[in-house]
Structure formats: C-alpha cells, structure tokens
C-alpha cells in the first residue's frame, strides 16, 4: 500500500527493541522506514493509547487526521468493528486531493478529536518510563509496580497494559491476560470507532 506521493513511516513501540520487533520487520521486507521506538516516545508525543494507530501529516508537517485505528484490511474486524477498506480509500483520496479531500479534517474538527494529556495521564507516562528503565536495567520485578501505576493512572491505554504484560507473565504478575481484558469490555469497542466521511 504505497500510493504515489505518500511516505509511509512505521514505528514499532517495543521495550524489547529489535529483539521484539526485528523478526516482524525482517519478514515484511519493507521499503519504507521501519523504525524502532524502545521508549514508546511516539505514543507519548501523540498521546496514543493503542496499536496500530495512524496519523496523517501533510507536506507542511501539520496533522491532517490524528490518532485512528489503522489496519490496511479487515483481518481484525472483530476488534475494529469498522470496514478498514474505507480508511485506506480515504488515505488514497487525500494523497490525490490534499486539503480538498473530504478526509482532510478542518482545524476545528482536528482540535475536537485531539485528546490532550490529563494530569493523571502525565503521571502514567512518568511511571511507565520509570518502569521501562528499571526493566531495562534488569530490575524487572521492581518495574512491575511502576507499570501497574501507569495502567491505573491511564486505564484507557492498551499500550501500557499490553507492553507490560508482554514483559513478564501477565497471569502471574498482573492477574490478567489480554483475552480476559478484552472479554471484560463486554461489547464496548476495543478501538475507538472510526469517524470517516461517507464519500470516497
């Protein structure tokens, strides 16, 4: 999926770095920059709470569409509950039509959709970073309370949950699992539903 005139940049949020993301990247043999973000910095900068998350950025470096679930097909429709082909079609439409595309959000709409970090979320971010540092230093058991704090202060972030669970035995140390947590949603969407114009 590389429409003309579009630069695709992927970022793997992965505390284990190449050890975690490397084999996936090698298997995909991507032609676009495939970056590794050990500290989850991009998630912090853009206030992302899940993956995959897509952001559209125009030629001037301005955000055109902020954080949205961004699968390229409907493999995960049970989670997305949205026809992702419409998202990809929208991306192509924007690449061709730029600011005139119905998919390019107005500034007011952009601001409405953009979630700014709350004090609790900032505290979550700090705890997550401390946990990552302790984990990287080999103090993985002492990292767990920090990760739990991060999850408690920002419960909407699946990144904080799933990354922490993946770094140890989730059942043993967090008393949960991804499957259990998704079941606990009880029909509430795992991803924020896409809000796309009906054209395109």
């Amino acid at each position: 999926m590389k429409p003309q005139g579009l630069e695709i940049i992927t970022v793997a949020l992965d505390s284990r770095g190449a050890e975690g993301a490397g084999e996936w990247i090698r298997a995909a043999t991507p032609e676009h920059p495939s970056l590794i973000d050990v500290e989850h910095r991009v998630a912090a900068l853009y206030n992302m709470v899940n993956v995959p998350t897509g952001v559209w950025i125009d030629e001037g470096g301005r955000v055109v569409r902020p954080n949205e679930v961004a699968f390229v097909d409907n493999r995960w429709i049970d989670y997305t509950k949205t026809d992702m082909t419409r998202y990809v079609a929208g991306l192509r439409d924007w690449v061709v039509n730029g600011a005139a595309s119905a998919f390019a959000l107005t500034e007011a709409e952009l601001r409405r959709r953009m979630a700014l970090p709350t004090p609790a979320q900032a505290l979550a971010a700090a705890n997550f970073r401390l946990g990552q540092y302790l984990h990287a230093q080999g103090h993985w058991e002492d990292a767990i309370p920090c990760f739990k704090q991060a999850q408690a202060f920002h419960p909407e972030s699946w990144c904080y949950k799933r990354q922490a669970w993946a770094l140890s035995d989730a059942e043993k140390y967090y008393g949960t699992s991804f499957k259990k947590e998704v079941e606990a949603l009880g029909g509430k969407p795992y991803y924020a539903p896409l809000d796309l114009p009906s054209v395109g």
């Binding site: 005139g5 695709i8 940049i9 992927t10 991009v42 993956v51 995959p52 559209w56 950025i57 993946a166």
Partner: peptide, 16 residues
C-alpha cells in the same frame, strides 16, 4: 521533520 514537502502516513504498531 526531514520528510517535509511530502505527505506522511505515520503508523505505530507493536509485536506484543
């Protein structure tokens, strides 16, 4: 920012 002048689709993912 080195990609200024081009449209960018930024996509984050996780292996976890």
């Amino acid at each position: 920012s080195h990609f200024r002048g081009r449209k960018v689709f930024l996509l984050t993912w996780g292996s976890w």
